[in-house]
Simulated assay, not measured.
Amino acid sequence: MFFVKLFALLASPFALLWALIYAYRKLRIWAFLLLIGVLVFASVAAYKSYERRFYLNHVPDALGVSSITYELQESWGFGPGGNEAGILVYPLSGELSRQVEQGGVQFLQNMPRNQNQETRGWQGNYETWLETPVANPQWKLNAKTGRLDVMDYICVYGFCIDVAPDVVKDANEIVNSAGSYYAQGRIGIIVVSPKKKKILYFYNG
C-alpha cells in the first residue's frame, strides 16, 4: 500500500503536465488560458481553505471559533533549523464568554475532546488550564514596565514581527490581569478572555 501511495504521489505532477500538454494541443488558445486560470484559482482557493482550517485548529472545537479577527505570522527558513513567530486573535461568542466566565478553569478543563484530534496532531490540545496573570518561567517580566509583554515572548529568539500596537496593548492587558484563562500548548500559548470576548494564540520557535 505504501508503494502504491508513493507511486500515485510521484505520478500526479506528470499526469497534470501531460493533461496540460494535451489540452494545449486540443483547445483554442482562449479556452486553454481559461483552463489555466480556473486551475490557478482552484489551487489558491484550496490553499486558503487549508490555511484557514490550520489556523482555526489552534483553538479547541468546544469554544466554537469559526473566524479570525487578526493574524500575523512569519517564518525564517524551513525544517528543524527554521524559526517562526506569530499571533492570532479569534472572537469568542457572548454565550461562550458567559460560560467560561461562570465555569472558569473547570469549564475549560472539562471541554470535550476534539473529534478529529488524531489528524490535528498537537493543535487544539491543551491539558492544563490556569487563570491569568500568566506565569511562565521562560517568559520574564519586561525590564522597563515590570509586566509581561507579549512581544518579549513572540520575539524571544530574536525573530520578530510587527504586530499592530492596539493588538499588543490588548494582549498585554489580558495576560497581566485576572479573569482570563490560559494554557501552554506543545507550541505557543492560548489565552481565553471572556471579558474581552476573544481568544489569543501566540507562539515562537
Rank of each mutant, 00 (worst) to 15 (best):
V4S: 05
F7R: 13
L9M: 11
L10C: 12
S12V: 04
F14S: 08
W18R: 04
A19H: 02
L20W: 06
L20Y: 11
Y22W: 13
Y24K: 15
K26N: 04
K26W: 06
I29N: 06
A31S: 13
V40C: 07
F41T: 11
A46N: 11
S49C: 00
Y50M: 03
E51Q: 04
E51K: 03
R52I: 00
R53S: 06
Y55W: 09
V59E: 11
A62R: 12
A62D: 04
A62T: 02
A62P: 04
A62Q: 07
V65R: 14
S66N: 13
L72R: 12
S75T: 15
G79P: 11
E84D: 05
L88C: 09
Y90A: 06
S93R: 09
S93F: 09
S97R: 05
Q99A: 11
V100G: 03
Q102S: 13
Q102A: 15
G103K: 05
Q106I: 05
L108Y: 14
N110Y: 05
E118D: 09
W122E: 05
L130C: 04
E131L: 03
K140L: 05
A143T: 15
A143S: 15
K144W: 02
K144T: 10
R147I: 01
D149S: 12
D149H: 14
D152H: 03
I154Q: 05
F159V: 02
V163Q: 11
K169N: 11
E173A: 05
E173K: 04
V175A: 12
N176T: 03
G179V: 02
I187F: 13
V191E: 10
V192P: 01
P194R: 10
K195S: 08
K197L: 01
K197I: 01
I199Q: 06
L200W: 13
